[in-house]
Write a protein that binds this DNA or RNA. Structure first.
Lengths: 217, 217
DNA sequence: CTGTTAATGAACTATCTAGTTCGTAACAAT
DNA sequence: ATTGTTACGAACTAGATAGTTCATTAACAG
């Protein structure tokens, strides 16, 4: 099932299921993110790997199941990244600002993830719904936000009684939109939103936005 | 070129170029918004009209040009809607809040527009760039925001010196994300973001968010 | 009422594409 | 070495799909 690690460290294996499988997944992620679900070609994905189309069906069964496997992969990576957030011992204002900036950095760095999410929403989430893996992928961010909001109300730093999901949406929306809609926005307003010269200012902006909202009047 | 209005008001025309053309456009808008560019089938679009596929190519030349025509149509509609904004004689705080809520309502009501924008961004704006119509579609919103921000700084209601495009993005992001990402968000957090019970609260939230941000500390 | 042109429809085609078939080679256990 | 199993590749197929061909009909000008 796994690579031969307990048997013999044969360095130059010509047949390696794990590697073939993950190579297919990586290439599929790139192609699906670039062309969308319907736009992606199974033949092209195969051509971009060292293996053949036959193997895609051998390991994943169908184009759709391959796509779902890609979704599971990127969402799991995101979740893993989120776990590294350590805002427990910060003051509420600093904590929420840190979380916002961290989300900003994450979205800025994971363009393919953003595209895949956008694509999946165009398909009304019909594929993500078929994945049991993702259905049970609770999001720790909500717990973190809940704790920050409560602490902020107690300390008096915040006066707005906000809903944690709403706050998460507010932060995500800003970070997501800036990357996801950069092309139409650029065409209409002539500004490259993701260009380096806007990055730091917008990063500061998310934090100040959430803090100002929670602080209230 | 146009319907026979100067010639004779023949009520029951069986052949009407304008009507055939606009019917194709309307159906195409629905299908492209539902299935994406690659996912949409020209045959299906034809089947959903009273005419045939032949007419699509007669009037639009290709699938891509039809798609571009749809983009031009929806963007022009949005621009027309934006013109109705009258915030000139309101106090800056009220003005920006009104604009935010108006954007919220607009995005809430035009789901197909949102989907088409998302789709076009997945294609990196390659189609919107080919449209001269849209390239020269200046956006009056920016002028409005600029004036509101200046007035707010003068009156002292605002202390944050914000960039108009950034402010527009902040508002759009919230309104867009809530609709565009409702499916994956729903799958992950178990909340139907666009359900009626959240609508009023989120609508208030956009306004308060922008006002709080601009007001500053 | 007749010729000209814009508008239309049915059926066709070349190409593409998801998915399969069949056979083979590498590896592990014995 | 032998055998069973896992991993693999080349070539094929059935169906779908964007785009076309060719013939026809409705409207209108004169």
């Amino acid at each position: 099932m796994a690579s031969p690690s307990g048997t013999r460290p044969s360095a130059a294996r010509q047949r390696d299921a794990d590697r073939t499988r993950s190579e297919i997944l990586e290439v599929a992620q790139r192609v699906f993110a670039r062309d969308g679900y319907a736009g992606a070609r199974v033949d092209e994905i195969a051509d971009l790997t060292r293996t053949t189309k036959r193997m895609i069906y051998y390991y994943f069964g169908s184009k759709e199941q391959l796509y779902i496997a890609v979704l599971e992969k990127v969402y799991t990576e995101v979740r893993t990244a989120e776990r590294t957030v350590d805002v427990a011992h910060l003051a509420p204002t600093s904590a929420i600002r840190t979380l916002a900036e961290l989300t900003f950095d994450h979205h800025d760095a994971h363009r393919e993830f953003i595209k895949l999410v956008a694509i999946e929403n165009i398909h009304r989430g019909e594929h993500i719904r078929k994945s049991e893996v993702l259905a049970n992928l609770g999001t720790p961010v909500l717990d973190i936000i809940t704790r920050i909001l409560e602490a902020g109300l107690v300390s008096g730093e915040f006066t707005t009684e906000a809903d944690p999901i709403d706050v998460h949406m507010m932060i995500s929306a800003f970070c997501f939109f800036r990357v996801a809609n950069q092309h139409t926005f650029g065409a209409l307003f002539g500004r490259e939103m993701t260009a380096p010269e806007h990055r730091a200012r917008q990063r500061r902006m998310v934090g100040e936005m959430v803090v100002a909202y929670l602080r209230g009047r």
